[in-house]
């Protein structure tokens, strides 16, 4: 093999890994969710604030309640639940809720949303910092109940989200937080 051929292979491999997201097709072929959405946290990390910025930028109609409970879904007009998963001890402390209570809130909320026929979109955008014992409890409980999931690549280094989503839950993996906007917006009908 010539040296130039080796170089071409290396460049192609690097481009495959670092190719701009705009050149990547997303998993969903058509929108699955309706607006307005209800945005909440599972784990009380600051990531929910990032999701809020992303959804605002995408001009999606939504409201946010980081601690919304299952019972509250009866009085909301939200048609889609967007959950941002990531545990934060600081966030849980500030919210005055224990990890166990947060997990119970999340389970009840997701079950109620399913019961009401709401679509559930899951986001994990905090990367490696939102993995580990605390976060993984929330991830394990919430991801299997989502109808669509977007993860920032760094958080899926061990393939956990790929495994949890399997073939049943459409999963998009993006490289940067700023790239979440495009597939998330595409998941909603205009």
């Amino acid at each position: 093999m010539k040296r130039s051929d080796i170089l071409r292979i290396v460049v192609a491999a690097l481009m495959a890994v670092y190719m701009p997201l705009s050149l990547v097709a997303f998993t969903l072929k058509a929108p699955i969710a309706a607006q307005p959405a209800l945005l909440t946290s599972i784990g009380q990390s600051a990531d929910v604030e990032m999701a809020k910025a992303i959804m605002s930028r995408a001009k999606l109609s939504f409201s946010m309640d980081s601690l919304v409970k299952a019972q509250a879904l009866a009085s909301t007009n939200a048609k889609t639940l967007v959950v941002v998963i990531g545990g934060s001890s600081k966030g849980l402390g500030a919210a005055g809720i224990s990890a166990d209570a947060e997990l119970e809130r999340a389970k009840a909320l997701l079950a109620e949303a399913k019961k009401r026929g709401m679509k559930i979109i899951g986001l994990h955008i905090g990367g490696e910092a939102r993995r580990g014992e605390l976060s993984d409890r929330f991830i394990g409980a919430a991801v299997p109940l989502c109808d669509y999931f977007i993860v920032v690549e760094e958080g899926n280094a061990d393939g956990l989200f790929t495994k949890l989503c399997g073939t049943k839950i459409p999963l998009d993996i993006v490289q940067k937080i700023s790239q979440v906007s495009e597939p998330l917006a595409a998941a909603f009908a205009k």
């Binding site: 990390s45 600051a46 604030e49 700023s178």
Partner: peptide
């Protein structure tokens, strides 16, 4: 920056410096 996003986004003077288009720097 990600961990303190909630604080940074509340104060526009800091957000202009320490956030990029309203999101964390990479």
């Amino acid at each position: 920056i990600k961990d303190n996003f909630g604080k940074l986004v509340k104060y526009e003077n800091g957000a202009q410096i320490y956030l990029k288009d309203g999101l964390p720097y990479e």
